[in-house]
Design a protein around this nucleic acid. Structure first.
Length: 566
RNA sequence: UGGGGCGUCGCCAAGCGGUAAGGCCCGGGGUUUUGAUCCCCGUAUGCGUAGGUUCGAAUCCUGCCGCCCCAGCCA
C-alpha cells in the first residue's frame, strides 16, 4: 500500500560525510553504549553567523539521526572580559529559530568552575602542573618558535606543596593579575607548541556574567573544553580544523585525570562564503563602527541578519546540508545560498504585485471613475494558497523598466505601439508617451481591449509579454530595501590593505516611493512574499510602523532577460 | 628534515582496488498570463604532479609541487 509519507513528508536528504560515517560506525560497534551525545559550544562574545549554522546543523543533526542521541548547548564562558549575557540570549534565540532544541541540556563551562579547580589541584598533586611566574614576554621567549624548541621555565620544578600553596593564593585573590599562571607540565621541546607547558589557569580580577565575583582565576579553553565534554558525557566532540593541533592536549588532559569519559574530538573545515566575512571580531567591528546597522542588519551573514533579511530556517538547513562536511578548506559561492532560499520561498511565498520604480499609465478608453475587482492567484502552481481580489481602474503604475521607448531586440514588455498583458487584467496597447521638458517619460497613455479581461485572449492571439502593475488609486506606499553583497570582492580578507576597503558602497539601496497592492496594507509581521517578476521580500517588523510599510529584499528572481540583454 | 592538515569539473562534493554519483554555475531545448517555477538534454578518457605495485589505481606505495593552520595569560 502506498504510504502517505510519500507525499506529505519532506525529503531530508542526508548525504554521507566523514563525521557521519565515524559516528555511524561507532553506533554500529556499540561504542559508548550506542549513544551519540554532541554539543554546540559557542562563546557568548558575539552573534552567531552562517558558519555557526553549519556547526549547529552538524552537531544537532548527528544525534537526531541516531536512536539514542542528544545535543547540548554549552556556553564556553571562560573569558569574562569579552562575554555578555546579551550574546547568550541572542545565541539561544538563533539556535531555536534555526529549529533545534537542546531540551534540558543547557550548560555553561562556568557551571564547572569548582570541578575544574579540583581537576587542576589533582594535576598539581600528580606533579603535572605548576605555578609559573614568568612574565608574558618571558613566557614567549621560553616557548621557543615554530622551528626551535622551548626552554623549561625556571619555576617548572617547584615542589607540589609550593604549587598547591601558590595556586591557592591565586584562587584567593592574593596575587596580582598577570603575576603568575598555572601551567601543565608536558614538554617544552614538543614540536607541537600547544604541548609546551600550556597555561591552564590565569588570574583575572573581573566580574563574570554568571559567577559574579566568585572567581579571580579562570581556566583556559584547552583545559576547560575537554573536561566539560567529559563531565557532560559527550561522545563526539566536533570542532573546526584549527583545533586539530590541540587534540593531543585535549587527550593529554583527559588521560592524566580521572574523568567520567574520554570523548573523541573530530575536526571539520569551517564555512567560508564568498563576498563576505565570517570573523566574529570583524563582524563586531562592522557593528561597532557603524558600517552596518547592527548585528541584525540584513546584509550581515549573522543568523539574526539573515532572519531579518527574510531567510527561512529551512533554507539555511538545506544550505548546510548541501555544502557538505569535509576537512578541505573551501569557499562556497553565495549563489548556493541564494538558490536555497529561492527554492524554499518559491514553494511557500504568496505572490503579490508591487512596483518598485513606478511610472503612471493612463488607460484612455477605460471609463473615468470606473473600478473593478480582478481575481489573482496567490500561487501559480499551488491552488491551496487560494486567490485574492485586486482593484483595477483607469490609472495604474507599472515598473519604469518595463517600458522602453526604443526597445532593444527581443524586448517584449511595453513599447510604443505594442501590446502587452497586464497580469490578471487586460491586454493594453501603448498609444503615446508624455515627456517633460527634459525629455523624460512621465506618463504613458494606453488603450485596453475589453475582451481580454483577466488577461485572457479569446481570439487566441499570442501576447509575449506580461507585466505587473498596481492601481494608482488603490496603491499603498512602501519603502523597499534592496540589498547587494556586503563586499565587492570574493575574498575581502585577501590581499594587502584592510578588509573594510572592500566594503561595497552600494550594498544597500533604499526605494521610498514604491507602490504595492492594497492587500499588503494589513499583513503579519515578517511575512514573506514574492513580488511577481521582481523577487522575494520580507516585511521588516523592526522598521515598519503605523502607516510605514518596509520590506527587505531577500533575493531576486532569476532573470534570464537581464542575462540576455547584457 | 618544526608540527598538524588538505589537494576529484568554474564552486561544492560522493567515491576508499574493478574502470568518475549528485548539487550549484554554465550552454541548448520544451511548457508557462511571473523573460519566475517546472521539465528535458549537454558539460572531467580525467581525480595536484612524476614514477612504482597490479590483469586493473582517484582509490595502495614512493618522491615532488601547491594551499591552509599553529609561537594569546582568546576561543
Amino acid at each position: 500500500m502506498a504510504t502517505e509519507n510519500n507525499t506529505t513528508e519532506e525529503q531530508v536528504i542526508s548525504a554521507p560525510n566523514f563525521v557521519r560515517n565515524i559516528v555511524a560506525e561507532d553506533v554500529k560497534n556499540n561504542k559508548n553504549g550506542g549513544k551519540v551525545v554532541t554539543r554546540f559550544p559557542p562563546e557568548p562574545n558575539g552573534y552567531l553567523h552562517i558558519g555557526h549554522a553549519k556547526s549547529i546543523c552538524l552537531n544537532f543533526g548527528l544525534p537526531a539521526e541516531s536512536a539514542n542521541g542528544k545535543c547540548h548547548l554549552r556556553f564556553d564562558d571562560t573569558n569574562p572580559e569579552k562575554e555578555d549575557v546579551e550574546y547568550s540570549r541572542a545565541i539561544e534565540e538563533d539556535v531555536k529559530w534555526l529549529g533545534f532544541d537542546w531540551a534540558e541540556d543547557l550548560y555553561h563551562a562556568s557551571d564547572y568552575f569548582d570541578q575544574l579547580y579540583q581537576y587542576a589541584v589533582a594535576l598539581i598533586k600528580k606533579g603535572k602542573a605548576y605555578v609559573c611566574h614568568l612574565s608574558p614576554d618571558e613566557a614567549r621567549e621560553y616557548r621557543g618558535t615554530l622551528k626551535e624548541p622551548g626552554k623549561n621555565s625556571p619555576y617548572r620544578d617547584r615542589s607540589i606543596e609550593e604549587n598547591m600553596q601558590l595556586f591557592e593564593s591565586m584562587k584567593n585573590g592574593e596575587l596580582a593579575e598577570g603575576e603568575c599562571v598555572l601551567r601543565a607540565k608536558i614538554d617544552m621541546s614538543s614540536p607541537n607548541i600547544n604541548m609546551r607547558d600550556p597555561i591552564i589557569y590565569r588570574i583575572r580580577k573581573v566580574h563574570h556574567h554568571r559567577t559574579g565575583d566568585d572567581w579571580c582565576i579562570y581556566p583556559m579553553y584547552d583545559f576547560t573544553h575537554c573536561l566539560s565534554d567529559s563531565i557532560e558525557g559527550i561522545t563526539h566532540s566536533v570542532c573546526t580544523l584549527e583545533f586539530e593541533d590541540h587534540r593531543p592536549l585535549y587527550d593529554w588532559v583527559l588521560d592524566e585525570l580521572e574523568t567520567p569519559c574520554h570523548p573523541q574530538q573530530i575536526e571539520f573545515a569551517r564555512l567560508n562564503l564568498d563576498y563576505t566575512i565570517m570573523s566574529k571580531r570583524k563582524l563586531l567591528e562592522l557593528v561597532e563602527n557603524g558600517y552596518v546597522n547592527g548585528w541584525d542588519d540584513p546584509r550581515m551573514p549573522t543568523i539574526s541578519g539573515m532572519r531579518r533579511r527574510g531567510f527561512t530556517p529551512e533554507s539555511i538547513r538545506t544550505f548546510c546540508e548541501r555544502i557538505g562536511v569535509t576537512k578541505k578548506d573551501s569557499v562556497i559561492e553565495t549563489g548556493v545560498l541564494e538558490n536555497c532560499i529561492r527554492e524554499d520561498l518559491d514553494k511557500k511565498a504568496p505572490r503579490v504585485m508591487a512596483v518598485l520604480d513606478p511610472i503612471k499609465v493612463v488607460i484612455e478608453n477605460y471609463p473615468d471613475g470606473q473600478e473593478e475587482m480582478l481575481t489573482a492567484k496567490n500561487h501559480p502552481n499551488d491552488e491551496t494558497l487560494g486567490t485574492r481580489e485586486i482593484p483595477f481602474c483607469k490609472e495604474i503604475y507599472i515598473e519604469r523598466g518595463d517600458f522602453a521607448e526604443e526597445p532593444p531586440k527581443k524586448f517584449f514588455r511595453m513599447k510604443p505601439g505594442g501590446e502587452v498583458r497586464l497580469r490578471y487584467a487586460y491586454i493594453v496597447k501603448c498609444e503615446s508617451v508624455v515627456h517633460d521638458e527634459q525629455g523624460n517619460v512621465i506618463e504613458i497613455r494606453c488603450s485596453y481591449d475589453q475582451e481580454t479581461r483577466g488577461g485572457k485572449t479569446p481570439d487566441g492571439r499570442k501576447i509575449k509579454g506580461t507585466i505587473h502593475w498596481v492601481s494608482a488609486k488603490h496603491a499603498v506606499d512602501a519603502e523597499v530595501r534592496l540589498y547587494d553583497r556586503l563586499f565587492n570582492v570574493p575574498n575581502p580578507d585577501a590581499g594587502e590593505g584592510d578588509y573594510k576597503g572592500n566594503l561595497n558602497p552600494e550594498s544597500l539601496e533604499i526605494r521610498v516611493n514604491c507602490k504595492v497592492e492594497p492587500s499588503l496594507a494589513q499583513i503579519d509581521a515578517e511575512q514573506r512574499y514574492q513580488f511577481e517578476r521582481i523577487g522575494y521580500f520580507c516585511h521588516d517588523a523592526k522598521d515598519s510602523d503605523e502607516g510605514v510599510l518596509v520590506f527587505n529584499r531577500v533575493a531576486t528572481l532569476r532573470d534570464s532577460w537581464a542575462k540576455l540583454s547584457r
